[in-house]
Design a protein around this nucleic acid. Structure first.
Lengths: 350, 350
DNA sequence: TTGAAAGCGCTAACAG
DNA sequence: CTGTTAGCGCTTTCAA
């Protein structure tokens, strides 16, 4: 079967291409019903589907939004992708998913690729501190919505950001532990390049202080600085962290991890050492991925409202579609929620 | 910054558009070095990037491969997506990832969307028995490579399939249990619509028979037929399965699950009932997702060689690029590997 | 060695 | 109400 064009449809219906085009683009208000029927008939008869490239070349528009996630290997991003797709589909948009592996270079390549494909709206999930590598495209008019990444001082002004309040999240996690009676905590963070680490650690520290403890006594385990950790490796990071932390003198009784994958790695590492999570050591994660509840023991964690984040992102895109005015970007901070499960308990009395 | 076209580059370099185009498309063999330099200079000066839509409209080609997975919420597919992307990038291809949620309708929509976007090669991960809903596009020349789905009798002849030998996999899983001494097994399968279930269950049965046991005594738990289970719900399916199976009389001592997510759900369900996995009950999964090794106890599972599968898929695409001949599709069956971990052991002696 | 010209399939004024 | 017309940005003969 050969490709069928608008011309052939026109011919089959005995009209001109423009008339077919008009029907296709909702300008059929004052069209004779008979004409409309003949065209519709011809379209389905021939199995005609408009050529995107041609249409786009002409109009410059697309109804596709790009989604770039740090790693589809991390179930959190998989789940978020589902939510975004769901919200987008409801508005008649399609989603194209790309996987950056937290590599600025891949991030840029994908943004360019999408831009060249005519995509003008991208939801970027990144924790990179700078957006410099994308500045040239943002200038050209790309609408960028960053997710899980609070606005940074030098971000281009048109960028919209949607994320949770990390300070609150870190505080929730740590104060949960201190209120259980823990006095010696460690914060485990894989990548130092993540902007989320800062906020979460800040909240962690504020909770520590609020409990009358000295922040100086708390450890920040941040892994090897040089290694570019992906999210799949997050579990390995956590596992190694546990090995190191609990081999050292004066180990903590409570651990807050930067995300659930890392937290699960920590749990695995503790088990390697014969320590029991939820009894010998308490562990709190971040994200609330499906597996948090499935794990043994189920993981206490700070939940991110991914459904809401996804809907906000799409709402932002829908409301601005077609606008060319560079209205200054906004920043939405959602409140995270602590989900208490079996991985945390009062510290052991020794 | 306005969009810069090939014309502007040409003007800036003092040449014609065709010359710029020639350079861009590797036809610069007999071009004056001076000319070439002026053009290259102009391109980077202006930040020129060719318009995909225009190029594609002209040529009809793309270097993008579509990847449709059943659910990015399942870490197995996330991991596979990474592998495929890796292999594709190495060959200069890009990957566009779509999420079908095992819905034939969404599958079709995405295939059409990708086709309309100029994508002519799609790696489709599906376990749907029929490809009828895609027949109209396959006829038009779409190159389809199905993954994790053995060729079915009525598949269009040009479809290439890459998957593991499910019969061998099911056999490996079950014979591992019988050789440990288990005599009462259950096969837990969520979706009845999955073509993989058949093969895996067949292998399961053959191992049961080989151990001198009666297949009729083994249970096949297949969940509620009506519910359209997604992969994220797989864990729930497993959990519910465990609840039902172990509430009934004469419960098994060994369980083979259709995939790891389901297996982890089964483990969770067993824990709900106070049963200990790897002691009271042995559980085997399928896939070997990252979390299998992270779990407590680590999950024994049948590993799918996703790296190899990804490379084969891309090799297939690369080798056929540009060919229009409808060479009959091939079917590759890879051998899965049993990974023994802590979730399986000899049955308890009572 | 380079350029002129035609056209991919579609849309959007503008005429009729 | 519908058709004519003129491109969108690029590639590709073919001619110079």
């Amino acid at each position: 079967m050969e490709k069928v064009t608008i011309q052939q449809v026109a011919r089959a219906a005995g009209v001109s291409a423009s008339t077919v085009s008009n029907l296709l683009n909702g300008r059929s208000g004052r069209m004779l019903p008979a004409t409309r029927d003949r065209i519709t008939e011809a379209i389905s008869q021939l199995g005609y589907r408009p050529n995107r490239a041609a249409r786009e070349l002409r109009t410059g528009r697309t109804r596709t939004v790009g989604l770039i996630v740090p790693s589809v290997g991390n179930p959190f991003w998989g789940a978020f992708a589902r939510e975004l797709e769901h919200a987008a589909l409801a508005e008649g948009y399609n989603v194209l998913l790309c996987n950056s592996e937290r590599d600025p270079d891949r991030e840029r390549r994908y943004v360019e690729e999408l831009w060249d494909d005519g995509v003008r709206e991208i939801v970027l999930c990144t924790s990179l501190p700078s957006l410099k590598h994308l500045a040239h495209i943002i200038e050209q008019g790309l609408r960028l919505i960053t997710l899980d990444r609070p606005t940074q001082a030098d971000d281009p002004s048109t960028v919209v950001s949607i994320s949770i309040n990390n300070v609150v999240g870190g505080h929730l996690a740590a104060s949960h532990l201190t209120s259980l009676g823990h006095r010696n905590l460690t914060f485990v963070s894989g990548s130092l390049r993540s902007v989320n680490r800062t906020g979460r650690y800040e909240g962690f520290c504020s909770a520590v202080e609020a409990a009358g403890l000295a922040v100086a006594d708390m450890t920040l385990w941040a892994g090897a600085d040089e290694a570019p950790f992906g999210d799949v490796e997050a579990a390995d990071v956590g596992r190694r962290a546990a090995h190191e932390i609990f081999a050292a003198a004066n180990p903590p009784t409570g651990v807050v991890a930067i995300n659930d994958m890392t937290a699960l790695g920590v749990c695995r590492g503790l088990r390697d050492l014969g320590l029991q999570v939820g009894r010998d050591v308490s562990v709190v994660g971040f994200d609330d991925i499906i597996l948090a509840d499935l794990y043994d023991p189920p993981l206490t964690t700070v939940r991110q409202p991914i459904g809401q984040m996804a809907r906000l992102a799409i709402a932002e895109i829908v409301s601005h579609h077609g606008l060319t005015t560079g209205e200054p970007g906004r920043s939405v901070l959602l409140r995270p929620e602590l989900i208490v499960r079996g991985s945390t308990a009062a510290p052991p009395v020794d």
